[in-house]
Design a protein around this nucleic acid. Structure first.
Lengths: 333, 333
DNA sequence: GTGAAAGCGCTAACAC
DNA sequence: GTGTTAGCGCTTTCAC
């Protein structure tokens, strides 16, 4: 440590500026000079100090990523999408989990801004006016990934959660011939989960399926709450013939809960999940699920950010990626 | 953006040095002065520039984390452990996935060092002499997490993979009365997987169980390779009565592969996984697995790093955390 | 208890 | 094509 651009300049008999040009790939350097500098760098084991560079150039080539929980399969996949594109564009990721707590989210944002990140990708359950306020004072672009903001003031990458759930319910309704469909929600404090719920409700209505409030079970996204939901539904006097959930993990819980109850899936009960995580293939019967392209959401978010950062042309700041239903063995008529 | 320590100093009628003292919690400031400064900071909406601070102080309060794949359940959990402790000590995490490619690992290390990270936590399949060389030139502490280095030259946090697998096999052997036990390995280019394999071999030998090379199936850590392994074993003329795998995901594959084959687990086949990820509970029958405390490995690694960084006393640089077997329904005699 | 001033290692005009 | 020279925004002696 300690060898600086100045040492390299001396060793190569050139000025600091020239060394700077070489390490930044500036073309205005005579090949011979470039080589001299390169040799000196090699010889001295020089490693440019990105902190100093950041201070001088006011760019750090790092972006902040605020994520609810990196140990969650869903978000981890999304993070990987972000990361792959980031590294492709030579950005570094400063990653922090927020546990969806607003004060933590805002603190993290602040810390990242202190670190002078060039941009931020935000994932969270809800976007309050405080969020918007904080983001707008950030002076760097902020992108919402898999996160819905009603005001549509921020660039974002999502699927249409409302339509996706609606499609899934309608698909399911066609399998079971006008029977009731139970629904296991994720926590409704998140806008996205609210949208899914609305999609379910509207699909039920439009399909003319029977409905009452008892067909909706409030889950918490955990496997266990899927099991609990199965018990809840199957103990009803007139249990639904199909259950759709807001996440795959809960769907696995529903399947196993039903199986423990002696119910056959899909013969006696159809089950549909949401997200199409790897889990969907790791259960018997395999799980029909609504595909949400997590990796792509991450990748597209990061790509969008790089465009913003490089001043590239942007067609549309509100990106909606396609969803679709992946039919597997947990649904059959 | 743009309000600096200098602006604050002017506003509060003090010098930059005093402002610096205040924001760094230095005690040598008269309370009245401190308050003046605090007011000015508030008024101006001053946010300290961590990059400038990093340049001046030669500390960035950020640590680099090199991880094979953040979208992998196992590593994601570990990352969460790192992160939680890091944020507790006010460090930021620069996170990158290496896909276990050595050149990528070394590149990432280099980039992180350019960013002047205060330390590095490394996870990878193997630690070559090039790694050691690179780490020793880093001039910042490097800690191995869930990563074994034969030379034991670096601080590290692990469980004893050899003993853990041996324990598991011996436990299993007691359930099935001297019958053969099949083993599904993870890729053997990783030291850890090699250790597990050796633990298996030695346990077989010590227990006097039958053995031949056909009882070892080379998996690749994927669910599918678990299914393949099940097919491989069950097609043998004399299939093993128990199968142990190097990872939970493969164990799920084995269970489902066996079930697809019409085999009952655990009545006809005992299955044991490794890592005790959340998956172990998300399968029927639930999976007996060797508990490896991923979160703790991450947390302890990061804690160890903070100790190194703060010059705190360290009892032992090579930490071995306890493992144990969590018995569930996939094993029964 | 507070201030002045010299860097930290680099980039970015601007000059030649 | 190359060099000179200000900074970037802070910390850190060293005085007082």
């Amino acid at each position: 440590m300690g060898v600086t651009i100045y040492d390299v300049a001396k060793e190569a008999n050139v000025s600091m500026a020239t060394v700077s040009r070489v390490i930044n790939g500036n073309t205005n350097v005579k090949p011979a000079t470039r080589q001299k500098v390169l040799n000196a760098i090699e010889e001295l084991g020089f490693r440019p100090n990105a902190v100093a560079r950041g201070l001088a150039s006011r760019k750090t080539t790092s972006v902040g990523v605020i994520i609810p929980d990196i140990s969650n399969l869903f978000f981890a996949e999304l993070a990987r999408g972000i990361e792959d594109i980031a590294s492709m564009y030579k950005y570094h990721i400063i990653l922090s989990s927020s546990d969806q707590q607003q004060n933590k989210e805002l603190d993290l944002l602040d810390n990242m801004l202190e670190k002078q990140v060039d941009g931020v990708i935000f994932m969270g359950s809800s976007v309050t006016s405080e969020h918007i306020e904080a983001f707008s004072q950030a002076n760097v672009p902020v992108i919402l990934a898999a996160t819905v903001d009603d005001s549509h003031t921020l660039p974002s990458v999502n699927i249409d959660y409302y339509e996706a759930m609606k499609d899934a319910v309608i698909h399911l309704s066609q399998q079971i011939d006008k029977e009731a469909i139970g629904f296991v929600t994720s926590p409704l404090n998140a806008k996205i989960n609210e949208m899914k719920r609305q999609g379910y409700l509207d699909a039920i209505k439009e399909s003319g399926l029977p409905f009452n409030e008892e067909y909706v079970y409030p889950g918490d996204d955990s496997y266990q709450s899927g099991i609990d939901a199965a018990n809840y539904f199957l103990n009803q006097t007139n249990p639904p013939k199909a259950i759709i959930t807001s996440s795959d993990e809960m769907a696995l819980g529903v399947i196993h809960g039903a199986q423990d109850y002696g119910i056959n899936v899909p013969d006696d009960l159809n089950v549909v999940g949401f997200d199409n995580t790897r889990l969907a293939n790791m259960v018997r019967p395999t799980l029909t699920s609504v595909l949400q392209p997590m990796y792509d959401i991450g990748a597209v978010s990061m790509r969008l950010l790089t465009k913003l950062l490089r001043g590239e042309e942007i067609e549309e700041e509100q990106v909606t990626l396609p969803h679709r239903i992946v039919v597997r063995d947990s649904t059959k008529n």
